[in-house]
Design a protein around this nucleic acid. Structure first.
Lengths: 251, 251
DNA sequence: TCTCTGCTTTCATTCTATGAAATGTTCTGT
DNA sequence: ACAGAACATTTCATAGAATGAAAGCAGAGA
């Protein structure tokens, strides 16, 4: 899961997080052996970690399977209520959604993934389920605008993890293709994606900068390829960039 | 924070969770020394834990303060999408809310607190903010129905932590009062609360049992003391109990 | 400038965390 | 029903991670 980064002490804690990440990425419960395999840990070690986490409500189990526990809710709640970014994002998304009629979201990068941290549904709210906290790829959709501003080392690491890949729409991308696209995105400041993560879906995203100019988040509008039609793209690009800039200013 | 339970290995992991819990309970960022103080740990230890957590996105910091990190969202998402209880609760709450017009919730106990794991707003949705994952007391409101079914040891531990206490409405409760009320609640299977956690608020709650008969969750309807009027209580008690039983059967 | 408070680093020691292996348990297929 | 495999748990000796004291820094305030 995570490469052994030299200089990082606290091995058992680090491994516990490995275990948690395995659980977080699984759509259903997993057995001990499988968790150990995916986390790259010894079974005995994995068991001890799971027991410790279970004792604290961070993990739940039935007879045979382990899954995420209720205790994990507290952390998310704390993040959503204390993060200045989340607080700043809400009103911006509200405006963006009512102006465009599209579902508007803010993403943040963590490691080599991203997470939705705030979302306002557009006029036709597709699904009820709130996707906050879903782990999404950094190389597809709005993730690209975040990927485009990675350091060289981080970008290479990302490439080595995902490239080459195929989008949901069937487009094949090599590492070179992807790097080139990221350069383009960085130039224009806008990432447009069609059929990348979901077929029939299209999105427009722009980067949010913190006070130091570092890219910390992305603002996105998304919809079907009909609601985000080709001839709206130019206008949407401007709108989304404005929203992103507005959010940047609020930080 | 957590008593040293003998036989629990994985000390550093356990302490890391102590640190996380401190952060989760803080309405805003905290300084290193303060976190160490609240968690009952040495500053150096606390710092190492925070660094390890920060490296994994579980904690964020600005110049001086630490707070919960984005990485914590993933766990909550995983819990909400994989927990059978959450899945079973949703339709039951939907029915309950439309039948009563009241905000309907399911709570789960973790340690000596509880968490909202599912909620459907009633006819007058008070607040936009989604409270899923909020840590709430076990001795007030719907928490009582969970407290009423604790083991003797756990109940004593809870008492030692909170009793004596005063409700939001100003009622003073000693440990004996509280124990007596819990006995009553256990007998009737229903917990009614007025002005306990919030002034002007009233709720009715019933217990959910798993296959083994253990109490695993609580179903609650809540509103103002006007919307949950005295003369509705009898009918609501039956409705809520039915909902709880229905949920029990789905597990 | 000096002092106080809080943060970070260093270091020797201890005892936690570790993995191999043995033991116990639950599936699977015949 | 049985044998064999796969999985889960416990035990144990050892390595080295985690620990806390103390020293070294940095920043705030007087």
């Amino acid at each position: 899961m995570s490469d052994k980064q030299p200089g990082n002490n606290m091995r058992s804690l680090d491994r516990a997080i490995d275990v948690l990440e395995v659980l977080e990425d699984a759509p259903r419960g997993l057995r001990l052996t499988e968790i150990a395999r995916r986390a790259g840990l010894h079974v005995a070690t994995t068991l001890r970690i799971l027991n410790a986490l279970e004792a604290r409500g961070r993990v739940e189990r039935d007879e045979t399977h382990y899954r995420a526990g209720v205790g994990l809710l507290f952390g998310a709640h704390a993040y959503l209520t204390t993060s200045p970014l989340v607080a700043a994002a809400r009103p911006v998304l509200q405006d963006l959604a009512s102006e465009t009629g599209l579902t508007s979201s803010v993403f943040v990068r963590t490691g080599y993934s991203r997470a939705v941290i705030a979302r306002v549904e557009g006029s036709n709210p597709l699904r009820y389920e709130l996707p906050i906290g879903e782990r999404l790829p950094l190389h597809l959709g709005a993730g690209k605008i975040l990927a485009a501003h990675l350091s060289d080392a981080d970008r290479d690491e990302l490439l080595s993890r995902v490239a080459p890949f195929v989008t949901a729409g069937g487009r094949e991308m090599t590492g070179e293709d992807f790097t080139a696209e990221l350069d383009e995105i960085r130039g224009s400041g806008i990432a447009v994606s069609t059929d990348e993560r979901i077929i029939g879906g299209r999105s427009v995203a722009a980067a949010v900068h913190d006070r130091d100019g570092a890219v910390t988040a992305a603002v996105q509008v998304a919809g079907t390829d009909e609601s985000v039609s080709e001839d709206r793209l130019k206008a949407l690009a401007i709108t989304v960039r404005n929203a992103a800039d507005q959010l940047s200013r609020r930080l």
